[in-house]
Structures are given as C-alpha cells and as structure tokens.
Amino acid sequence: MNWLSLAFSQIVNGLQAGSVYALVALGYSMVYGIILLLNFAHGDLIMVGAYTAFYAMTAFHLHPVVSVALAILISTALGVLVEKIAYTPLRSAPRLSLLITAIGISFLLENGAQLIFGADTKSMDPFVRGVLTLGNATVSYAALITILVSVIAMVGLTLMVKKTKLGKAMRAVSEDMGAAQLMGISLNKTISFTFAVGSALAGIGSVLYLCAYPQASPTMGSMLGLKAFVAAVLGGIGSIPGAMLGGFSIGLLEALVSAGGLSEWKDGVVFAVLIVVLLVKPAGILGKKIPEKL
C-alpha cells in the first residue's frame, strides 16, 4: 500500500515537471520545425515570464489570474520581438549565424535580468496551496493545475495546427518555404505567429513552474530550457507530439531517478539520455519520417 502511494506520488511529480518541460519543448520544436533554428533564448522566456508574474503579485499585488495573464502576454511579446529584431534579418544567412545569435540573445536576457532584478533568487509565498486527497493518495493542487493546464494547452495546440488555416500554413511553411509563398502564404506573418504561439506556451510554462517553485532567478531558464531541449530532441525535434512525449518522458525519468535515491544524478541522467538519443536514434522517437514515393 505504502509502496503504491509512493509510486503514485512520484508519477504525479514526474508528470508535473514533465508538463512544464513539454510546454517549453513545444516552443523549441515548433521554431526548429519552421526555420531550423535551435532557439536557445527560448528557455529565458520562462525566466522573464516568472519575473513578470512574481513582481505582478508581490510588488503590485495583482490578482494571480491577472498576473498570470500578464506573464503570458509579456513572454509572447518578447518572443516575437526577439524574432523580429534578431532573427528576421538573418533569414537567408547561414544557420550557424542564427544559432550564435540565439545564444547571444540568451546571454543578453540572463545578464539583463541580473542587472535589473539582481543576481539573487527572489522567493515568494506559494500562491497555489492545498492538496487533494484521493483515498490514501494525495495530489497537490499545484500539480493538478499544472498537468491539467498543460494538457489543455497541448490539445488546443494540436487542434490549431491540424484544423485552422494558420496552423496549416505553419505546416506548409515548415515543409517548403518557397512552395508556401507560391500559395500566397506570408512567411513573415506565419513565422511570427509560430514564435508567438511557442512563446505563449513558454509563458504558460513559467507560471506553472512558479506554482511548483515560487521563486525567480536570472538563470532559472537555462537549465529548464536545456532539459526541454533534450525533451524535444528525445521526442524528435520538429514534431509536436514528439515534444509532448519527450517532455513527459524526461519528467517521469527524473522522478524515477529521484525515487531511487539518486536525486543529485537527475540532471546527469537527462543529459545522458541526450547523448544516447543522438547516438542511437538522432531523429528522436517521433522524428520526421517523410513518406516518399517518387
């Protein structure tokens, strides 16, 4: 019985962390899918989102719902702004220039945050409290909200990409930019939209992270971003269901390692997964297979 409830709570923990990884991994994967850029500044959007929500609640005493909306809004705006200012001018430049620019933006955001907010970790009281008791097992509301919100976001995203005109345009552009233009699809609009959606998901991720760990620091996005990147690669970068699968897998793997009493090995295990995936199946679990018959 005890064993069972321990397993249950570890699975919940894993799904909670995995939800955040999955949301962030989606942003990596969507942007990679459309412009072949590993947007290493993506993780830092989480940091910006977290600071936004943090100060909205602590300094301005805004309602959590308003703060959350503000955090998502600011991450989205920042993601699109970075794309417009830093990436659009490099559209026809070698991919390496784009990658280096992304790393530069990441440093800029982290050091900018350090300058503005200070290098120390800012903590606040948890704003989601309480647990739900189900027989012998308990689930925190924070975990419940996190898992629920991310599942809703992912279902919404999947429907958007599959059914809407803009979603289809995104897929067309990611498959063939030139042909997409010949259809009358505007690259600028579609790419900005992709960044907006990816960044909004990162914004949601930042708030969910804050539910679990009510604190913000300038470099909080880098480890989280890297792990989400591993999740995206594990699932198959460029693939939306892959990012979700990768995110939840990494979350559950971490929970498993921690449950085994090796919690300080958690990060190491995640990066070992990256190495193994790159060696054994570089395209990832759901990596793009193009059905071809020419």
Partner: peptide
C-alpha cells in the same frame, strides 16, 4: 514549381 513541390506530409 519545378519538381512539383507539393506538401508531402499534408
């Protein structure tokens, strides 16, 4: 276009 360039995954 040359080579058709239809969207193979759609």
């Amino acid at each position: 276009p040359e080579g058709r360039r239809i969207f193979l995954r759609m």
